[in-house]
Structures are given as structure tokens and as C-alpha cells.
């Protein structure tokens, strides 16, 4: 490892059942305090894709990802990961970076790595080391003293150092400086290409991210407004950004 090339994840063989879509949502509704947050959401994400979940604030992106992560059941409809219902047993397939998630502030980064090893059965300590070098993470720094960019890098590292076949990132770039963004994007790609991982990334940072996606899901006011294959979109002379503007303006 020269620390310059983004490191690759080594997935355990057989972690993801072959031939099954990574995520399926069918007719998903979600009501929170009588407010309808998601309405009849249906889509499928095949394995080996990098999918962008795009939409303005309040569109329902985070709620949808929480359902995928199995943190809460939908009011109606079906959410499946690799053919199994989302929920605690399906957590073994999933590495989730929640929006505005917090890591424990009182430990150092190095101590966190040791804790993570005990928390996550699929933690890969060697990959964590490679990522720490590439992402230039200071192991002696106390978590509470990290800048937003450093914290985002540690959080991403925590997600990628696991061997889970599905990685779900909710706004990994918010408030993150340009260099950290570039490193995060490079790590995602290196990890993706290395194994047969599937990524779902919610962001409103389209320009920075659109070259990463195979597919985009456009969500607004709790509904799926468009599903696009990104290169097919470009073959029609359209950018992700122009499609986004068309859908949301």
C-alpha cells in the first residue's frame, strides 16, 4: 500500500446470495405521526450498482433508507434485501451510514477501530488499516475534536471496513471539504470495483457525484418521480442535473 491508491475491499465469498436483487421495495407507504412520508414507493436495485438517491430536503430520502436499513418497518408494503425482509436478520448484509450519525466522542479514532472490531462481526481490520492510510485519518485524535471532514472520513471508513455486500450512505458529503469529498468518492469506487458490492448513496450534491452512479432514483414528496440509467440518459443528450431540474422545478 502506497497510501495513494484507494484500497479494495475483500468480500467474503457467499455473503451476498447470487442472482437476487440487493434491494426491492414494493408498494411501500410510511406514515409518521399521521403524516404520509412515503407513498407507494417501488423500485429495485440489482447487485453491483452504484445508485444515487436524489431529491430535495424533505423528499423522504432518509426515511426510505431507514426502512432499507430495517431500523423501522413500513406502514405498508415490502422492503427486501437480497430476497429477505429488511430487519434485524438482514442486517448482516448491510453497512449503513446514517445522516448526521454520531460516533462516540470520548474515544480516540484508534480506540474506535478496536471497538468496531468487537461491534461488527464482519469488520476487516486489514482493510480498516488501508483505508485509514488512504483517508489520512489521525488515530490518536479524540473523536469529539475532529473536523467535519475528518469525522465524515472516519464514518465512511467505519462503513467500508466491513464486508457487508450492501453499503447505504445517507448524505456522506454534507459539510465536507473538497479534498475529503474526493477521497470519499475514490474510496467508494475502489471498494465497489474490488468486490461485488452494491452502493446506495443519498445526496443532493449532484454535480460532484453524478459520474459515480450507474442509476439514479429521483424522489420528491415521498414519491418516486423517475428511475434513470445514467448512461442511457446521457445517450439522449441529458445530464443527471438537467433531468433533476426537469423533475423538480
Amino acid at each position: 500500500m502506497d497510501g495513494k491508491t484507494a484500497p479494495t475491499a475483500q468480500l467474503q465469498k457467499g455473503t451476498a446470495p447470487a442472482g437476487r436483487p440487493a434491494v426491492v421495495c414494493r408498494g411501500v407507504f410510511m406514515k409518521i405521526r399521521n403524516k404520509e412520508i412515503l407513498r407507494d414507493v417501488s423500485f429495485r436495485v440489482d447487485q453491483g450498482q452504484i445508485v444515487g438517491l436524489l431529491g430535495p430536503n424533505g423528499a423522504g430520502k432518509s426515511t426510505l433508507l431507514r426502512l432499507v436499513a430495517g431500523l423501522t418497518p413500513p406502514t405498508a408494503g415490502v422492503v427486501e434485501l437480497f430476497g429477505e425482509p429488511a430487519g434485524v436478520p438482514a442486517l448482516r448484509y448491510l453497512s449503513f451510514l446514517p445522516d448526521r450519525g454520531k460516533l462516540p466522542g470520548w474515544v480516540t479514532v484508534g480506540e474506535w477501530f478496536r471497538l468496531a472490531r468487537d461491534i461488527y462481526p464482519d469488520w476487516d481490520p486489514d482493510h480498516a488499516e488501508e483505508l485509514a492510510e488512504f483517508l489520512k485519518v489521525r488515530r490518536t485524535a479524540r473523536m469529539s475534536t475532529l473536523s467535519r471532514g475528518e469525522e465524515a472520513r472516519v464514518q465512511l471508513l467505519t462503513c467500508l471496513a466491513r464486508r457487508a455486500p450492501l453499503v447505504v450512505l445517507d448524505e456522506p458529503f454534507t459539510g465536507v471539504d473538497m479534498i475529503s469529498r474526493e477521497q470519499i468518492a475514490s474510496s467508494v469506487i475502489a471498494d465497489f470495483a474490488g468486490g461485488s458490492r452494491t452502493f446506495i448513496i443519498a445526496t443532493h450534491d449532484i454535480r460532484e457525484m453524478e459520474n459515480l452512479f450507474n442509476q439514479v432514483i429521483l424522489i420528491g414528496e415521498g414519491r418516486i418521480l423517475a428511475l434513470e440509467d445514467v448512461e442511457a440518459l446521457r445517450a439522449r443528450g441529458r445530464s443527471v442535473e438537467s433531468r433533476y431540474r426537469e423533475v423538480f422545478s
Binding site: 491508491t5 484507494a6 479494495t8 452504484i50 474526493e182 468518492a185 475514490s186 474510496s187 469506487i189 475502489a190 465497489f192 470495483a193 474490488g194 459520474n211 459515480l212 452512479f213 450507474n214 445514467v230 448512461e231
Partner: peptide, 18 residues
């Protein structure tokens, strides 16, 4: 390699494969 190039210029690896 596909992986190296995709990560360095931050585009989807399938783009480089194609």
C-alpha cells in the same frame, strides 16, 4: 487497471470498462 483509473478520476468503473 479499471479499478485504479475509475477511483483516480472518480467515475463509475463500468464507464472505464466500456
Amino acid at each position: 487497471s479499471v479499478r485504479e483509473l475509475a477511483a483516480a478520476i472518480r467515475v463509475n468503473p463500468t464507464t472505464i470498462q466500456r
